[in-house]
C-alpha cells in the first residue's frame, strides 16, 4: 500500500441477485492523482463506484477513505467526508435552476437545518452569499455563467455533464468519482472537461478517479490506470505499464491492444 493513498479498497465483494458483480477487488488511489478505472463491459466498474459512494453495500471487504473505513456508510455521510461522485447518466436536478443546483451542493450551509435557520437567519444568509460567489466562479470556469438562471432541465446534454461536474466540485471534495465524464459529450467539450480536471488538480490538489472507455484519453490524461475484469482488479500502474501487461490484453478478449476496443 502506498503511504499516500487517499482511497484503499481491499478484497471488495458484492453480489447482486446471485451474480457476483465485484469479486475480491483490491486497489488504491494516490492522493492528488488523476486515476482512470477501465475494463470491459460488465467488469464491475459502476458497481465499484456505487460501493465507494455508499449506493451499494459491500458483502465483504473494506474501503478506507482518507484513513477512515467507509464501507457500509450512507451516501450522504461519505459525501460529507469529501468523496463525491457523478453518475453515468447525468443526474441534474431538472426542475431547479442551474444556480440552485450549485447552491444545493454547498458543503456547510446552516440554513439547511431548521433549528439553525430559525435561530440564526443572518448566518444562513451570509453563508448563502459566500456559496453564491463560489458557485459563480465555478460556473464561469465551466462556461455556464449565462445559464445560471435557467432550469437545469433546459440545458443540452453536454452542459448537463458540465453542471454535474461543477456541482460535485462545489462540495469542496478531496476525491471526485466521475463515471464516464466524456460519454455523450462532443470531443471539444470533452477536452475542455479534461483541462478543467487537470487545472483543478493543480490548484486545489483534488484527486480524481474516473471511468472511461476512450483509451486515448485514458492513456494521455491519467497518471495511473486501474484495470478491472470480471469483478477483479487485474492490473494497476502507469499507462505504459498497464498497456504492456499481457493480462490486460487478455481481458479485452483477444484484441491486439486496449486501444482498439475504445
Amino acid at each position: 500500500m502506498s503511504a499516500d493513498a487517499i482511497l484503499e479498497v481491499a478484497d471488495a465483494v458484492k453480489d447482486f441477485d446471485g451474480l457476483r458483480a465485484v469479486d475480491g477487488a483490491s486497489f488504491h488511489v494516490e492522493r492528488g492523482s488523476i486515476t482512470a478505472l477501465i475494463g470491459p463491459n460488465g467488469a464491475g466498474k459502476t458497481t465499484m463506484f456505487d460501493l465507494l459512494s455508499g449506493f451499494a453495500r459491500l458483502n465483504t471487504g473494506t474501503i478506507r477513505f482518507a484513513g477512515r473505513s467507509i464501507g457500509g456508510m450512507a451516501p450522504h455521510r461519505i459525501a460529507r467526508l469529501g468523496l463525491v461522485r457523478t453518475f453515468q447518466l447525468t443526474r441534474v436536478l431538472a426542475g431547479m435552476s442551474v444556480m440552485d443546483n450549485m447552491l444545493l451542493a454547498a458543503p456547510s450551509q446552516p440554513g439547511e437545518h431548521l433549528p439553525s435557520l430559525i435561530l440564526g437567519p443572518r448566518r444562513a444568509r451570509a453563508a448563502e452569499a459566500r456559496s453564491r460567489a463560489d458557485a459563480q466562479a465555478l460556473l464561469e470556469t465551466f462556461g455556464l455563467r449565462d445559464k445560471a438562471r435557467d432550469y437545469a432541465g433546459a440545458l443540452s446534454g453536454g452542459q448537463r455533464k458540465l453542471l454535474e461536474i461543477a456541482r460535485a466540485l462545489m462540495t469542496q471534495p478531496s476525491l471526485v468519482l466521475l463515471d464516464e465524464p466524456m460519454a455523450g459529450v462532443n470531443p471539444t467539450l470533452g477536452r475542455a472537461i479534461l483541462d478543467h480536471i487537470a487545472a483543478l488538480r493543480e490548484q486545489r490538489g483534488t484527486t480524481f478517479l474516473f471511468v472511461e472507455h476512450d483509451m486515448d484519453v485514458v492513456m494521455s490524461r491519467a497518471d495511473r490506470v486501474i484495470v478491472m475484469a470480471q469483478g477483479r482488479v487485474i492490473s494497476a500502474g502507469t499507462p505504459a505499464q498497464v498497456r504492456a501487461d499481457p493480462a490486460v490484453v487478455e481481458a479485452y478478449l483477444g484484441s491486439a491492444s486496449p486501444e482498439t476496443t475504445a
Binding site: 456505487d50 449506493f55 451499494a56 451516501p75 453518475f87
Partner: peptide, 9 residues
C-alpha cells in the same frame, strides 16, 4: 438505479 439505496436498506 433510482432506488438503490432504499432497496439496499
Amino acid at each position: 438505479m433510482t432506488d438503490t439505496t432504499q432497496t439496499e436498506r
